[in-house]
Simulated scan of single mutants.
Amino acid sequence: MGATFELYEDREGKYRWRLVHDNGNIIADSGEGYATRQKARQGIESVRANAPDAPLESLED
Results as ranks from 00 to 15, higher is better:
D53S: 05
W17L: 05
G43A: 09
S58E: 08
H21S: 02
T4H: 13
A54V: 11
N23K: 08
E12K: 12
F5A: 02
L56R: 04
V47A: 13
R16N: 13
R48M: 10
D10K: 03
E6K: 09
R41C: 07
E60A: 03
A49E: 13
M1F: 13
D53R: 07
G2H: 13
K14V: 02
R48Y: 08
R11F: 09
R48L: 02
R16W: 03
Y15R: 00
G24E: 04
D29T: 03
A51N: 15
R41Q: 14
P52R: 05
K39M: 14
A3D: 09
P55I: 01
E12A: 11
L59W: 15
A35D: 14
V47C: 12
I44C: 00
R37T: 08
S46Y: 11
M1K: 07
E32I: 10
G43T: 03
E45L: 07
T36C: 00
S58Q: 11
G2K: 14
E45Y: 00
L7A: 05
E6H: 15
V47T: 12
A3R: 14
R41H: 08
G33R: 10
S58L: 06
A35Y: 05
N23V: 02
R11A: 15
E9R: 13
N50D: 14
D22H: 09
E60D: 09
E32R: 14
Y15A: 06
L59A: 10
G33I: 08
N50C: 13
E45T: 00
L7H: 03
I44A: 11
E9V: 01
P52V: 08
V47G: 06
G24T: 01
N25H: 10
P55G: 10
L56H: 01
V47W: 13
T36V: 00
T4W: 07
A35Q: 14
G43K: 10
A51L: 06
N50M: 11
N25L: 08
N23L: 01
P55S: 13
A51Q: 13
D29M: 06
W17P: 02
A51Y: 15
T4M: 09
E60R: 10
R41N: 08
A40Q: 00
V47E: 12
P55H: 07
E45F: 02
E32T: 15
V20A: 10
Y34V: 09
S30Y: 09
R11T: 15
